[in-house]
């Protein structure tokens, strides 16, 4: 990717090292593309959104001393680009086009007995020190794996709601789903994600 900073008058010696770190930029671009593709279900739209976000962020790249700060900024721009694209595209995506169209008769019922009460070994337990967890790099690896394991539709709807912060009615409009469809998917995604985090980190996992 060719990027020019000439207009800012920044000499190369003043440039921040990560700007020339091709591996970092490529990894970041790939992460963004994966996220945007998952959200938009359209490779071309996703590539456009990523490119626009990247160019937008690079304009102010000198302000960001560290990789983490830059990544946060570029993802914030990408979130807005995706939210705009989703809002513009009411009902463009048919439910049938979504991946994993209905794998999702799900293990939700395995969590509860026939009367709808927790199975004995599925009862949520108290979580130890969540504020410590979010400062731990190992925790984030667990979190990302748990997120990846959400079935396509659930993961996508969950990220639309929690990461991009769309309201339920905006998600309905973007995906052509009913409110109760979306509520069911969010409920299942949260059940699944909390179980995964509990099992792999907060209770049985080692938190160092």
């Amino acid at each position: 990717m060719a990027l020019s900073f000439d207009e800012s008058g920044v000499r190369s010696s003043d440039e921040i090292a990560w700007m020339r770190d091709a591996a970092f930029l490529e990894t970041l671009r790939r992460q963004m593309l994966k996220f945007a593709t998952q959200q938009l279900s359209d490779t071309h739209l996703a590539e456009d959104a990523v490119q626009e976000a990247f160019i937008g962020a690079m304009k102010n790249a000198q302000k960001f001393a560290g990789r983490a700060a830059f990544k946060t900024w570029v993802f914030a721009i990408l979130k807005n680009k995706i939210a705009d694209a989703l809002r513009q595209r009411h009902r463009a995506v048919e439910v049938s086009q979504l991946p994993y169209a209905d794998d999702e008769e799900d293990n939700a019922h395995q969590l509860f007995d026939h009367r709808g009460f927790w199975q004995a070994d599925e009862q949520p337990k108290a979580w130890m020190e969540p504020e410590t967890a979010i400062k731990n790099a190992q925790f984030w690896r667990v979190f990302e794996v748990c997120l990846e394991h959400l079935p396509g539709r659930q993961g996508r709807v969950f990220m639309m709601r929690e990461f991009i912060e769309l309201e339920t009615n905006e998600i309905c409009a973007a995906l052509g789903l009913t409110v109760s469809n979306v509520n069911v998917m969010l409920h299942r995604a949260r059940l699944r994600l909390r179980k995964c985090l509990e099992k792999n980190w907060f209770v049985e996992g080692e938190s160092c």
């Binding site: 983490a68 993802f75 914030a76 925790f139 984030w140």
Partner: peptide
């Protein structure tokens, strides 16, 4: 996560 806490976490 959206605020990049995963990037600034220790280790």
């Amino acid at each position: 996560y959206a605020d990049g806490a995963d990037e600034s976490a220790t280790t």
